[in-house]
Nucleic acid binder design. Structure first.
Lengths: 328, 328
DNA sequence: TAAATCATTGCGCACGTGTGCATTTTTTTG
DNA sequence: CAAAAAAATGCACACGTGCGCAATGATTTA
């Protein structure tokens, strides 16, 4: 019971073979006789040997580590994304080095530096806007960079994002069909690129149809902000529709409308969200919303990760609308 | 612009010093003159040098990697736990190697093996029951193992868990105070140790007071199962109280009670949950529940991680009850 | 049976870093 | 200014592994 881990050297000694034999036994496709292999495996089992992947990655230059950076890891949408991503990585024999960007909301550059130090093979950014200089460094070091739901004005990095503007269009058209006269767009103070795209696309489409639009954005992207928005906005009795750029906002808005402001949904006010988080399907809400296909989003990230020469740098994942019960 | 990463050797050559000087420049407390340090830093910046932590960990035997294993990473409670944990790790200069145990629900042994291969300094298990043999291997290899909300019959590993039985007691006493005559205990088919502890403690306390208890457990631990439980159980008009071992179950139960089974809560039925996830505070629910202090839970994990000689192996975190509006 | 082919094995180098040790340079002290 | 102390520097080894290369042993072919 030596302190620390067992090395291939010790296994070799016990099995009475060379260290190379041990290495080859654990290297698929290497040339070892059955007899030696058996001896090595026996010794390894007895000593509790495990190959050291760090040392392995040192001369392989394949660390098998994938860096994942994100904020708001406990928000339903992101956490589901992380869930699927981590499963997919594990299945592909890749490890997930998770960095929570909560402390460095805007500037995630230091975190990416850290991932460089760990020789991450690739980096997936779930949220937080990376400066353009980071992209250059990734390219220089041969690290693949994948941005999720986030658009950069460059063609030399991978981006996977949902079709925000089309989603916003769907929402707008639906509210127009519901004969809304005056609608609200609810977003948060964080104003992520995705949120801005959704809000502006929606606004444009509505205004083109001659519908009044009032914008609201304050606080963090969560239930409470949506609730606040509902309380603020629905003092205006004219408002009969709302598009919330996130389901969490929409659910807060819904509760404010029904419970605090005494409106009937959908009879008095129609509400549409974006994301389709699990809670939106709960019986108390049944929110009509734009669904991002989280599985195809994740699949695209994973293929972008393992493809050697990515054909398409920019992948836009289609969205659809699921009609539940919050639109007239 | 060489392919791959820059090494200390190259920096040394460019700066006109020895490789040792480079190493020392990036090692806090090492002896380097100002002049040399400046030259090295300049060269490093120009070349984009970053120390290779993998190689570093090779002779340090401090990989700085902490393995985190868990299932249901997108469930509100676990995801919040992961969120806090990953923040805390980062602040302490530790990296979070995340393994999603979704594919190996029961047997997480292979995942822990994998963490051994990466020479993780410590392993945090958020869910999924590790076999006792794993504990031995961790000890043999000097890897600290921390089990969260999960009790093993051994005294040689770290465990941090909420006071489940006391929480269940609080719930029982409250339902007794509400004069419930017949109550349900709702759990899931997964029957994790924590769930079992809560359910049995609750049942014992209730039966000791002469209250009828019916148990229900089926499906995964989520909203839908709670909903199903509500639909099944509330056919019995006698049932006027329920303790759900998880908030998600409780929320589903609530919706079933109010919407599907037309009961008034709390007038007809009282409901208590466990965890205090964000959704429980939402205006549509206002669930009375047992709150686990996620922050102290996480703090205890982190201190267990960095303390060299843990005084207390078993840490029980106190729980409390937050009264909202689902109990008469 | 001799020759040729093939599988197996061990040696030694490489990967990128930290650090002990001896040596050289600088600073402080008397 | 000389001597002693302190600081800085380079060399070489160690960490644990994969793999190329040459040598050895086993097997097939003529």
């Amino acid at each position: 019971m030596a302190r620390g881990f067992v090395t291939a050297e010790e296994v070799a000694k016990r099995a009475g073979v060379s260290r190379s034999a041990v290495s080859r036994t654990f290297t698929p496709g290497a040339s070892v006789s059955q007899a030696v292999r058996r001896k090595v495996l026996k010794a390894a089992r007895e000593l509790g040997y495990r190959v050291n992947r760090l040392a392995q990655g040192l001369n392989n230059d394949r660390s098998n580590l994938i860096g994942v950076v994100g904020t708001n890891l406990s928000a339903p949408f992101i956490s589901k994304q992380l869930d699927l991503l981590s499963i997919g990585l594990l299945r592909r024999g890749l490890q997930c080095l998770l960095l929570n960007a909560a402390d460095a909301r805007k500037d995630i550059a230091p975190l990416i530096e850290l991932l460089f130090e760990f020789r991450a093979q690739a980096i997936v950014v779930l949220s937080g806007e990376p400066p353009s200089s980071i992209v250059d460094e990734c390219i220089a070091n041969g690290v693949r960079l994948i941005l999720v739901n986030q658009r950069l004005d460059r063609t030399d990095t991978n981006m996977v994002l949902s079709d925000d503007s089309h989603g916003a269009d769907l929402a707008a058209l639906r509210l127009i069909a519901a004969k809304c006269q005056k609608v609200a767009v609810v977003s948060s103070a964080s104003q992520t690129p995705a949120q801005v795209r959704r809000a502006t696309a929606f606004t444009q489409r509505m205004q083109a149809s001659g519908v009044d639009v009032v914008a609201w954005s304050d606080g963090p992207t969560g239930y409470e902000s949506g609730y606040q928005a509902g309380c603020d906005l629905l003092r205006d009795k004219k408002i009969d529709g709302a598009f919330c750029v996130t389901d969490l906002l929409a659910l807060g808005f819904l509760d404010a409308a029904r419970i605090e402001m005494h409106r009937r949904v959908p009879e008095d006010v129609s509400v549409i969200g974006f994301d389709d988080i699990p809670q939106s399907g709960w019986k108390s809400y049944e929110l009509t919303t734009i669904v991002q296909s989280l599985s195809t989003l994740t699949d695209n990230v994973l293929t972008a990760l393992e493809t050697d020469e990515p054909a398409t740098r920019l992948q836009v994942v289609p969205v659809s609308m699921i009609e539940r019960k919050t639109v007239r």
